[in-house]
């Protein structure tokens, strides 16, 4: 991470060159990891993946503004944010591989992360179900007089759920320090946002008495500017806000999905519209990065992931006895009997 010493806060009065470069490195690492996991899925090494390509920019922006005490109640497309907050890639790979070193004993499909130590909640599949949960987490923070805020993100599809409605209403009525982030990538599997809702997403907060803010999430400075305002609002007002980061899902919904059936790619990875390429060009124009250094970053990311993947693949799968643990604090006679008879 960058230092703030010596009056070098050149960008948005907030960040120095090192912080921007670090964000870029995390974004590149995330994209590289994403691509490798997709390949690993095709090779049969990993079962499934919901790629985060196209989500890197708003996620590094959030990462740059989050503080240690903030809790993130995240969803399954937040790989970049996990990396930004320091989740070791070894732990991520153990999770993807569902091996015996995985914290949840390989119980979850890939992308259903469990990194409490790094300020995250545990990810479930049902969309937006964690939003009311996040309001409850904020309530606990307030009641226990803890520092920090809660950030909870989901996709555009999440805004159609009853959970979204309940969460925004409760957060507003209780005046909770929470930021709801909608990573609007244009599609909920196959459904374009234009058929998901006819109201602009940022406007949805108004109905609950919550301010909304929307920005181009493909551009690092526009994302940072938007999030700076949003974080400042929640931190100073101790009240909820709804944020829409407009981005584009560059990959499929998941490795089980073929987007060719329902759309033409509007942004092709590696093209000049790719937000990661735009980020690179921006840093080059600012004199923070050159092609040579960029190649070094990408080479390092590729080699680091390859080496670690090879190493983690040697770890055996979880023992079958782990099936029965953690259903309750202690197994009941029912789980114990099933273990004795079958495991």
């Amino acid at each position: 991470m960058g230092s703030n010493g010596g009056g070098t806060l050149k960008f948005l009065n907030r960040f120095d060159e090192n912080e921007l470069l670090n964000a870029y490195r995390v974004a590149v690492y995330s994209r590289t990891l994403d691509d490798r996991i997709i390949n690993a899925q095709r090779q049969g090494i990993i079962g499934f993946h919901t790629p985060s390509a196209g989500h890197e920019i708003p996620q590094v922006a959030m990462g740059m503004l989050l503080e240690k005490d903030d809790i993130v109640i995240n969803y399954y497309r937040d790989l970049t944010l996990l990396l930004f907050r320091g989740v070791p890639v070894e732990n991520l790979l153990d999770h993807f591989l569902a091996n015996s070193e995985d914290f949840s004993h390989g119980r979850n499909m890939p992308d259903h992360y469990n990194f409490r130590e790094y300020g995250f909640y545990s990810v479930q599949s049902p969309v937006a179900m964690h939003l009311p949960f996040a309001v409850g987490a904020a309530y606990a923070k307030v009641m226990k007089k803890e520092n920090g805020i809660v950030l909870s993100n989901t996709g555009d599809g999440g805004t159609s759920t009853g959970d979204f409605h309940a969460a925004l209403n409760f957060a507003s009525v209780w005046k909770m320090p929470i930021m709801f982030v909608i990573e609007n990538n244009g599609y909920a599997i196959s459904l374009p946002t234009s058929e998901q809702t006819k109201a602009p997403i940022e406007k949805k907060g108004e109905a609950y008495g919550i301010p909304g803010i929307s920005f181009d999430g493909n551009d690092i400075f526009s994302a940072l500017e938007g999030f700076i305002k949003a974080f400042e609002y929640v931190r100073t007002q101790r009240s909820p806000i709804l944020v829409e980061a407009r981005i584009y899902r560059m990959g499929p919904h998941s490795t089980s999905d073929d987007p060719k059936k329902y759309r033409k790619d509007e942004i092709v990875p590696g093209s000049s519209d790719d937000p990661l390429v735009k980020f690179k060009e921006k840093l080059k124009s600012l004199g923070i990065l050159n092609e040579e250094f960029d190649n070094e970053i990408k080479k390092w990311a590729t080699e680091d992931i390859e080496r670690k993947l090879e190493e983690r693949m040697k770890i055996p799968p979880p023992s079958k006895e782990t099936i029965i643990y953690d259903v309750y604090e202690n197994p009941t006679w029912i789980q114990e009997e099933e273990r004795r008879e079958w495991l």
Binding site: I71, F133, G136, Y139
Partner: peptide, 28 residues
């Protein structure tokens, strides 16, 4: 009223928020 909360009329909200409270150290 911080500890005896009259909630809006929404059961998913009541239970959903209660689970979040419980996971982060309260006993709702």
């Amino acid at each position: 009223k911080e500890r005896v909360i009259d909630t809006p009329l929404n059961e998913l909200g009541i239970v959903g928020t209660a689970i979040g409270m419980a996971a982060y150290g309260l006993r709702p």
